[in-house]
């Protein structure tokens, strides 16, 4: 045996290891970077228009499902939970559907720089507040634990990186930033199985979540032709082609039907 022989052995070993390494590191993110290649756009206040509307629900809404929060004594400690313990899955008030994510899914030219202010995903009384939220690519999302119990924030992202972080202390804050467009990312707390939230990530600011009266407003939309999509966690999506004119307010309504 001499050193050239051992070097030859090394020459075989190295590629084998590299191959194995590649195998190990695959399964990471593989999102396409189409967004990043788009040119940067800005809102021109001189021409910007507004889209408003209401999302209605036709038919009998399902009876609210109860949540037994006694599973964790800390969950009932928050005064907020004097409200009935029901899921936030379907919230209908007088035929108006709340928690619908409305956004421009097609027609937006370019990408927009993320808003400087952050959005907050709060865990309070073992619920997510808000239940549905939108955030821009690159915008800071602050996850807050307002409960004196453990929450873990398990975001089952498919295009963005999946994350699963724990917050043990009351008042703990954790920053999170998304890198790719993805509608919607389901978020769950595995300690409190009923806790669910959905995050829509977009490379533009033209999105809204319907309020309890089913209303939504998208502001600063440049004139143009768009596809407006309304997404609901249980009833799927509805789409409309719309045309937005300079400085005008366009009204668009959606109606989800009971299956």
């Amino acid at each position: 045996m001499n050193s050239s022989r051992s070097l030859r052995l090394g020459a075989w070993l190295l590629p084998a290891l590299l191959l194995a390494f590649a195998l190990a590191s695959c399964g990471g993110d593989s999102g396409d970077d189409a967004d990043a290649k788009k040119p940067l756009a800005t809102i021109d206040p001189a021409t910007a228009a507004t889209i408003t509307g209401t999302v209605t629900f036709q038919g009998t809404p399902p009876a609210p499902k109860s949540v037994r929060m006694e599973a964790d004594p800390h969950c009932n400690a928050t005064p907020e939970n004097e409200t009935p313990e029901v899921t936030q899955e379907v919230v209908v008030n007088n035929g108006r559907l709340a928690n619908v994510f409305v956004y421009l899914s097609d027609g937006v030219k370019g990408r927009y720089a993320p808003t400087a202010d952050s959005v907050v995903l709060d865990q309070r009384g073992c619920r997510y507040h808000p239940h549905v939220l939108g955030v821009m690519v690159g915008q800071r999302m602050v996850v807050r634990n307002s409960d004196a119990t453990l929450h873990n924030i398990h975001a089952a992202a498919k295009i963005n990186k999946e994350f699963n972080i724990a917050q043990t202390q009351q008042g703990q804050l954790t920053d999170q930033v998304f890198t790719h467009t993805e509608v919607m990312i389901p978020v769950a707390c595995d300690v409190h199985g009923w806790m669910r939230s959905f995050i829509g990530v977009l490379s533009h600011p033209f999105f809204a979540v319907t309020a309890t009266d089913g209303s939504f407003v998208l502001k600063g939309v440049p004139p143009g032709t768009y596809t407006l999509t309304a997404w609901h966690e249980k009833y799927g999506t509805l789409q409309q082609k719309i045309e937005v004119k300079e400085r005008e307010s366009t009204a668009v309504d959606f109606a989800f039907k009971a299956p």
């Binding site: 194995a20 390494f21 195998l23 190990a24 590191s25 990471g28 398990h154 999946e162 994350f163 699963n164």
Partner: peptide, 20 residues
């Protein structure tokens, strides 16, 4: 299953390291 821990590359490297 990497979804259960949130550690993806870390566990993979752990495995590789042990194999080597």
């Amino acid at each position: 299953v990497s979804h259960y821990t949130g550690s993806s590359a870390g566990q993979n490297l752990w495995i590789l390291s042990l194999a080597i």
